[in-house]
């Protein structure tokens, strides 16, 4: 610290230096895997990228041209979009209940607790649940894209609700009271004042949930099942990026592993784009 004070005694000074150096080294160690993974993703993934890689579907042939990942990209986007359409309205609805009505009532606390419980449930268990409820029972056939979306929506729901609750709590009570004092009914206050004010934050939370769902493999495994061809019909089997990668890794053939690296880079880039968009919207929000 400042000059003029007696220097800290040798042993204590050395301990301080050693500890600081140790913490710095461990922090750098934490960054090593990131550097290694990014390096491998770029060096192997970019090699797989080409025009045809993005415009053809996997062929599923054991020899010859393995094909690209078009069906996987489109399938992932469709399934995550449906999952978002399910999870975001319900998730924000529950958050609205907790902030506007439940507050600190007994029931609201129980709901909060179970939302937390949902956050901790492993994604593979959600997959099992949807398999039991929707696939085994043969509702609308066996494996289908929308069933995968339901499994993903279960994963997204607690993320949307938790972040939504935080953001809705940031909306100043003064705004609500002003609107109520002007004679606006409660639903109008929510629809016209609370939701618009919280919109950027709610969007950020939803996009982060999307980023989480997009990379999930386990819940899709037994709800959508793997298929090579392109399908735009969510009531049929659909391909997806995570399942494509998982499948190619399992085959352990060089050209398929090559495609897995290309698909992995694509998936990571898509997830990063969504995450960046979420952060950008968060920065522009007026709520802290």
């Amino acid at each position: 610290m400042s000059a003029g004070l007696p220097a800290v005694a040798g042993r204590r000074r050395n301990a301080d230096r050693a500890a600081r150096a140790g913490l710095l080294v461990l922090t750098l160690v934490a960054l090593v895997p990131l550097v290694l993974i990014v390096f491998e993703l770029l060096s192997k993934g970019l090699g797989a990228w080409s025009w045809t890689f993005f415009t053809t579907d996997p062929t599923g042939r054991f020899l010859g041209d393995p094909g690209g990942i078009r069906s996987a990209i489109i399938g992932s986007i469709v399934m995550v979009a449906i999952a978002t359409a399910i999870a975001v309205p319900i998730g924000i609805g529950v958050a609205l209940y907790l902030v506007e009505y439940g507050k600190s009532s007994r029931f609201a606390d129980v709901v909060r607790y179970f939302v937390d419980v949902m956050t901790g449930v492993p994604s593979v268990v959600f997959g099992l649940f949807v398999y039991i409820v929707l696939v085994v029972s043969q509702i609308g056939g066996t494996f289908a894209g929308w069933k995968g979306s339901v499994a993903l929506a279960l994963l997204m729901l607690p993320v949307v609700t938790r972040s939504g609750e935080v953001v809705l709590n940031l909306v100043p009570d003064g705004l609500r009271e002003a609107a109520l004092a002007l004679g606006a009914p409660r639903w109008r206050v929510v629809a016209r004042i609370v939701l618009p004010t919280a919109l950027p934050g709610l969007t950020t939370g939803s996009l982060l949930a999307v980023a989480r769902a997009a990379g999930e493999t386990a819940p899709l495994l037994f709800t959508v099942a793997f298929v090579n061809g392109l399908s735009l019909d969510p009531s049929a089997r659909m391909n997806s990026l995570p399942l494509q990668i998982f499948n190619d890794v399992g085959q352990a053939q060089d050209r398929l592993v090559q495609r897995a690296w290309g698909a992995a880079l694509t998936l990571v880039v898509l997830i990063l784009l969504v995450t960046l968009l979420a952060r950008f919207i968060q920065k522009r929000s007026r709520l802290a």
Binding site: T217, P242, V257, A264, V268
Partner: peptide, 15 residues
């Protein structure tokens, strides 16, 4: 540090 969280499970497996 948070970028590590953006890498999906299946990509960790591949790597």
């Amino acid at each position: 540090l948070e970028l590590l969280a953006a890498v999906p499970s299946v990509v960790y497996g591949l790597w």
